Amino acid sequence: MTNTFSPLATYDRDAVRHWTYGTASTQVPIPPPTGSPYLSDLSFVSGANGWGPVERDSSNGEQAAGDGQPITIRGTAYTKGLGVHAAADVAFYLGGNCTRLTATVGIDDEVAPYGSVTFALVADGRTLTTTPVLTGDSTAVPLDVDVSGVQDLHLVVQDGGDGNAHDHADWADARLTCAQ
């Protein structure tokens, strides 16, 4: 994660006050995850979302942060996960420390039977898996994907080809298995 800051320094020279300023950037590393964390408990490297912000442990809702409902796919409620809206791309730094990602994906009940999306996991620039187009009538799809050695992982949701209206997509119970 890159952070930019603007330092300001003051000093006296020949009894006259002077100042200087500038900008600088620094990389603030996100440590790789350990144990079995839920993705909703980790820091994002980046989070792009088609409508409103990426929501932690709730559905996408509408435009405001925190306006989602509990994650629910075909009547099953999940306490953990990420609620997004197509087109979405949420990135995580794994640092090669993890071996598996598991999740249950689908369109949230708050928009069913509408919506159509695909879910993809992209690791270090290559696609590990992509679902078929899922609609608001589709059953939830379990994912269990090998992420051994992956440095950067992106959770990507695209619209199903008919525009992104009602494309509230859930990464329910998204969890990693990592070294301690």
Score class of each variant (00 low, 15 high):
G52W: 11
G95S: 11
R126H: 10
V133C: 12
V133M: 10
G47P: 13
Y21K: 13
E55P: 05
P142M: 08
A120E: 09
T130R: 13
S58N: 04
G106R: 11
Y78M: 02
V117L: 14
S58I: 00
T72L: 00
A65Q: 12
T135H: 15
D146C: 00
V117A: 12
W51D: 13
V150Y: 09
L101V: 03
V147D: 04
G47D: 14
V84N: 14
V145N: 11
E110N: 03
V145R: 12
D67V: 01
Y93S: 07
A65K: 05
F92P: 11
A88V: 05
T72D: 00
N60D: 15
N49F: 02
V84L: 10
I107F: 01
Y114V: 10
N49M: 02
S36A: 11
T102M: 03
G95H: 08
V28Y: 08
S43Y: 05
S58V: 00
T99S: 14
V54A: 05
V111N: 12
Y114L: 13
S58Q: 15
C98F: 12
T99M: 01
P70L: 04
A65D: 15
P142G: 13
A140H: 05
G47S: 15
A120Y: 05
G106I: 08
S40H: 01
P37L: 07
L94G: 15
L143N: 09
P31E: 06
T23W: 08
S36I: 00
T104P: 06
T130E: 06
G75V: 12
G61N: 11
A77R: 14
T139S: 14
D124S: 07
A64G: 07
D144F: 03
L39Q: 03
A77K: 07
S43M: 10
D146I: 00
D67A: 01
V54E: 06
A48T: 13
T139N: 12
G52E: 06
P29S: 12
T34R: 11
G136V: 05
V84M: 05
D137W: 02
P142W: 13
A86D: 10
T129W: 08
D146N: 07
D109S: 06
G68A: 09
V122A: 01
G35L: 03
I73G: 03
L101I: 04
T131A: 09
V122T: 13
A120M: 08
E55C: 13
S116A: 14
W51S: 11
S43L: 14
L121P: 00
L143F: 12
D124M: 12
P33I: 04
L121E: 03
T104L: 05
V111M: 04
G66E: 01
T76W: 02
D57E: 10
S138T: 13
R126K: 14
G22D: 09
D124W: 12
R126W: 04
I30C: 09
W51P: 00
G81L: 03
G68E: 08
S40L: 00
P113M: 03
T79L: 02
S58K: 14
T104M: 06
Q27W: 15
V147C: 03
G61K: 07
G95R: 05
T76G: 01
V122E: 08
T72R: 10
S43A: 11
I30T: 15
T127R: 14
T26K: 03
T130A: 07
A77Y: 01
Q69A: 15
Q63L: 14
D41C: 01
G68W: 06
Q69K: 15
D67W: 02
S138P: 12
Y78D: 00
T127G: 02
